[in-house]
Design a protein around this nucleic acid. Structure first.
Length: 839
DNA sequence: TCGCTGGAATGATAG
DNA sequence: CACTATCATTCCAGC
């Protein structure tokens, strides 16, 4: 009993992991298997459940999630308060976010207990338990207690998903949300909402009774909670999968607790966990010394990859930044770049389907990610998860999960871990490979909307919410003890079959600017172009009103389904003194429009911004970024209102589409360039680079805001609650150039939302305080109070409003109408916020 | 046979 | 409430 905590781990780990894996790529099919092996998972769950009791008084409920999201839907105001953020934070087990959460509020508004407690009762059913005890380092054992008090329960769990019960729908991780949800519920959550026995049917959406949601009621503990009506494979979950999910909750909580008990705040779980606890891994491959970097169930994963996992230098902090935190892509000497962007379309597979393979690159290969500026010899771990691509801040996508792909064709080793409710693929970044990784091991799993939407606390809707981004992260431990976390998000990826087949898509444009007189030929490369496709140029005011719209002439003679020759129409005012940014889109008919593409009309008096087509795959080094950054500064920011007004914080992100994408656009499409490592530099320099996937915004949508700002100043990572509600899911873009990384001493990003003046130019200015540390944050942190946004990095040198300047971005829908519903809601929210802030 | 696709049928939703 | 266009999911079939 002394080390109940550990025991818990082991229990989770053991279970059926081994069996299910069958020695074959266990991790590979976490999701898919889940569907088919759900039953076993459940069984396991039950078996284990009795042993572990988690008491999370703090409210599993997201303090604000319910309300916050509801607000969104209703078009009500999105609270800039912590509440909204909390919601996000809760989703993450990492705890990082949790720290940001308002600890004393419960979803229902009632005060929450200050410290959630995890009560673990170890029965020692498992032989492993003993082993663990013995093997546990004494130091670690000391921490093993029956009851753990967590610094902040909210921190590691989303109310909705929090409870294992609710599962994760986010579980996502599971696509089996509904499925395992129940299993989890039994164990941890008594909440009616989470309980499998409580019909989700009373959810926000009404699904047919055969719908997964309604099936739950009939489930009994002994049976798969999510039995699919049609005998869907979702019935059972592979042991490992299940475990992973299950652990996700418990692990994070437990780990957090353990970590809280540690003095250094940094705990290498893998070290603390008896090897036996990770026997699965061991059994599968002795050579694979997988080191679970993620305290959240990392050790639960079973290494299945045949390739040697070189035990990259793991980032082992109990407080990894929450996945919904906005991190920069570059910091100091480091720069995380997506050298090769994924294709804009990738049909995700359902659990009921077989894998649809790994996400590919436009070039036919696979996405490539590289970390620049890292000179150490120690390998690092590149994390990958599926994030959102809407107007809001980047965050894990509730309806999609990364899916590990393995097989002969996969050359990159990887393994899965669960962080919060999000599945994270960890890929080694090896010095011998120049810290470059080919992402050929990542597919995308689509979770059923009904499963996710019914999840307690989940307010996002899945319908038409089919665009995602691949989000890469790397955590670099500094000698000082701090950890630099970088993040790069890919261009948006449309995951629906329909969209991929019907919606026109512009991948490249030969030029992104032209004199106001127009007349030049613009070559568009993409997909789904039709002989009668139209190309419409649009200029919108910051308030979203159309100022100008004209249809460009398309050379039908040269038509190709993948190419359109367009004559750039003259701008309405050919005497502009500064560049004017407009957008254009390809239209195949009503509701079938491409995302907005950026285009800039130049004034004869304005220096022409580099407009040569860029190769999307052109490698970019940190140095180069730096250059861009500078260049960026020097560039005129014409249509780009850098005024605070554009900042969500200050008001509604009303930046018009005309805003220069360079600084402000975090639109999903823009992100890639601005925020994501891959093209960050581009963003800084120019709106849309030819040759690069065009920035796409959804026509008719407000542009997203982004914290864009010159990157020389250190940025601050803001917690969700504190972060300005940026329209862009940006990755915190360092896109424009040098960007201070998110730092957190002791690896605890959890720091507070509170900001402090930081030292300009400090390479690692922003530091996160450990979870234990209240929202005081490091001196370098600059917090901009925001309500529901995830943490965002902001420049320290700039005033918050300015720094956080974000231009309202347009959703990058392939189909203008595509996400209208969702965006409408968001827009309403933003508007509300705007009103609020102004008020 | 299995994994990966491309297509498409079918039922659910939204307007 | 009926009807239709869209979407989301599930199935199939080919390679």
């Amino acid at each position: 009993m002394q080390n109940s905590c550990l025991q818990v781990f082991s229990k989770f780990n053991f279970g059926s992991l081994v069996p299910s894996t069958g020695g074959k790529e266990t991790g590979l099919h976490l999701i898919a298997p889940l569907a088919t092996n759900m039953k076993s998972a459940e069984e396991d769950a039950f078996n284990y459940t009795p042993n572990v009791t988690l008491s999370l008084p703090i409210s599993m409920g997201n303090p604000c999630l319910s309300t916050q999201y509801h607000s969104l839907h209703s078009g009500s105001i999105i609270p800039m308060s912590s509440c909204h953020q909390d919601g996000y934070g809760l989703h993450n087990n990492s705890g990082a976010s949790g720290y940001y959460l308002t600890p004393n509020l419960r979803p229902n508004g009632a005060p929450a207990l200050e410290s959630p407690r995890i009560e673990i009762t170890a029965y020692g059913q498992f032989p492993e338990d003993e082993m663990e005890e013995n093997t546990l380092p004494i130091a670690k054992r000391v921490n093993s207690i029956v009851t753990l008090t967590l610094p902040n329960a909210d921190g590691y769990r989303d109310p909705s998903c929090l409870s294992p019960a609710s599962s994760l729908s986010s579980r996502s991780c599971n696509s089996e949300a509904s499925s395992y949800e129940s299993g989890f519920s039994y164990n941890y959550d008594n909440s009616p909402q989470n309980s499998p026995w409580h019909s989700p049917c009373n959810g926000k959406r009404k699904y047919s009774f055969n719908g997964a949601p309604c099936r739950h009621p009939s489930y009994s503990p002994g049976h798969s909670p999510t039995v699919s009506p049609q005998g869907s494979p979702r019935v059972s979950v592979p042991d490992e999968a299940w475990l992973a999910n299950t652990n996700q909750y418990t692990n994070s909580a437990i780990v957090a607790a353990i970590n809280a008990l540690t003095t250094d705040g940094i705990v290498d779980l893998s070290d603390s966990v008896p090897l036996k606890s990770r026997k699965t891994s061991l059994e599968h491959s002795a050579s694979m010394s997988l080191k679970k970097e993620n305290y959240c169930g990392g050790f639960l994963d079973v290494p299945q990859h045949p390739y040697p996992w070189s035990k990259p230098k793991p980032y082992i902090s109990p407080s990894l930044p929450s996945l919904d935190w906005q991190l920069p892509s570059c910091s100091g000497p480091y720069s995380l770049q997506i050298e090769v962007q994924p294709k804009s379309h990738h049909r995700a597979h359902y659990e009921t389907e077989g894998s649809r393979g790994a996400v590919k690159a436009m070039s036919g290969g696979h996405p490539v990610v590289q970390l620049y500026g890292y000179m150490e010899s120690e390998p690092l771990t590149l994390q990958l998860f599926i994030g959102t691509a809407d107007d809001r801040l980047l965050r894990p996508h509730a309806f999609y999960q990364v899916h590990r792909i393995t097989g002969k064709t996969v050359s990159t080793a990887s393994h899965e871990i669960m962080q919060s409710n999000t599945k994270v693929l960890e890929i080694p970044l090896l010095p011998e490979n120049n810290m470059r990784a080919i992402i050929d091991c990542a597919g995308i799993l689509k979770l059923r909307n009904s499963d996710i939407e019914l999840r307690k606390g989940e307010t996002d809707i899945g319908r038409k919410n089919t665009r995602v981004r691949m989000v890469f992260r790397v955590h670099i431990n500094q000698p000082s003890g701090r950890t630099v976390s970088l993040q790069a998000a890919s261009n948006p990826i449309e995951c629906s079959q329909r969209s991929a087949q019907e919606l026109p898509l512009v991948e490249k444009q030969s030029v992104d600017s032209s004199p106001a007189t127009g007349g030049k030929t613009l070559v568009l490369n993409g997909h789904n172009f039709l002989p009668d496709s139209k190309v419409v140029f649009v200029e919108k005011a910051q308030d979203g009103h159309h100022l100008w719209e004209t249809e460009a002439k398309v050379d039908k003679d040269s038509f190709k389904s993948t190419t359109l020759l367009v004559e750039i129409p003259p701008y309405r005012n050919q005497r502009i003194s500064t560049p004017v940014q407009v957008n254009f889109y390809v239209c195949n008919g009503k509701r079938k429009r491409s995302q907005y593409q950026r285009f800039t009309y130049l004034s004869p008096n304005v220096p022409i911004i580099k407009t040569e087509p860029n190769d999307d795959y052109e490698p970019k080094g940190a140095a180069r970024l730096s250059v861009h950054s500078k260049a960026y500064y020097g560039l005129p920011t014409p249509a780009m209102p850098a005024d605070p007004g554009h900042c969500l914080v200050g008001g509604y992100p009303s930046s018009s589409p005309t805003s220069s994408p360079k600084l402000h656009d975090l639109s999903p499409t823009a992100y890639p360039k601005c925020l994501s490592g891959g093209q960050s530099h581009h963003a800084g320099m120019q709106p849309a680079l030819p040759g690069a996937p065009a920035i796409q915004e959804t026509p008719g949508r407000p542009m997203g805001m982004h914290p864009g700002s010159p990157d020389h100043a250190p940025l601050v990572m803001l917690p969700p609650q504190m972060a300005p509600h940026l329209g862009s899911p940006g990755t915190g873009g360092c896109s424009h150039g040098y960007r201070p990384p998110a730092l957190y001493p002791n690896g605890s990003p959890a720091s507070s939302p509170v900001s402090h003046p930081s030292t300009p130019e400090t390479p690692f200015a922003p530091a996160y305080s450990p979870p234990q540390a209240p929202p005081t944050a490091s001196p370098h942190l600059t917090a901009i109070p925001t309500r529901s946004s995830p943490p965002v990095l902001l420049r320290e040198d700039s005033s918050p409003p300015t720094l956080a300047v974000t231009v309202k971005q347009e959703p990058q829908e392939l189909d203008q109408m595509y996400l209208d519903d969702v965006n409408e809601i968001i827009r309403n929210d933003l508007s509300s916020i705007s009103v609020h802030s102004h008020a």
